[in-house]
Simulated scan of single mutants.
Amino acid sequence: MQNSDLRQLMQEAAKDAVTYSQQEHQIQLDNSIESLQQVDTILAKLHQQQLIKAHSAEVLFTISNIFGAYIGEAFITNVGGSWANNETNSDAPFIYIQLADKEFPFASVCYHKLTHDNSISVYDYVMQAMTNALQ
């Protein structure tokens, strides 16, 4: 996949996260770093629902990826970086933000918050990523 195609795909996925947040949770996301606290709220609610009745693998994949895209776009806007695609393992490719020599797999963080550990904060993760990226 070409970098321009990947960037367009991720920008569209980020827009899907904004639409989903507004329609399903009545939360307005504005591409700011502060809005990631709202993403934490949405993912925490979805995590609680997951405990009651498991979401399908497709729903988990979609939610993780659209919010990973949203977080990534906010990160690019506020810090820098670009989208990259790791296809080293053809069974488990993943998309991440590349900034200098650092990689930030935001969709993976969302997935772990949804499925394993609700105490994970994507806002805190991004704040730490910003600190690491600027070192």
Rank of each mutant, 00 (worst) to 15 (best):
Q26W: 10
S108E: 10
K113W: 04
N78K: 06
E24S: 13
S32N: 11
A129G: 03
M10W: 01
S56M: 01
T19W: 09
E73K: 00
F94Y: 15
S4F: 00
S56K: 02
L6D: 05
A133I: 02
P93R: 07
H112M: 01
Q8A: 04
D16W: 13
M130W: 06
Q135I: 13
A17L: 11
D101L: 08
A57W: 07
H116Y: 04
I33D: 13
N3E: 13
I27G: 09
F75Y: 11
Q49I: 01
R7N: 02
A129S: 14
N86I: 15
I76P: 08
S32K: 11
I33H: 12
A57G: 05
E12Y: 05
V39T: 11
A133C: 07
T62S: 04
Y125G: 03
E73R: 02
F106H: 10
C110M: 05
L99H: 14
A17F: 06
H112I: 03
Q11H: 09
A107R: 06
T88S: 14
G68Y: 02
Q22S: 15
T62H: 08
A13Q: 13
V59R: 13
K113S: 06
E34R: 15
F104N: 05
H116G: 01
G68S: 03
P105N: 05
N86K: 13
L6P: 09
N86Q: 10
N3F: 06
N132S: 12
V109S: 00
N86T: 12
N86P: 04
Q23Y: 11
N132W: 06
G68D: 04
T19M: 13
G80E: 06
I66G: 01
S82Q: 11
D5Y: 06
L43K: 02
L6K: 07
H112C: 00
Q28R: 15
S108L: 06
V79W: 02
A14G: 07
Y96D: 00
S35Q: 12
I95F: 03
I42C: 02
F94T: 07
I66K: 05
Y20F: 15
S21P: 09
S90K: 15
D16N: 11
D40V: 07
D91P: 01
Q23A: 14
L9N: 11
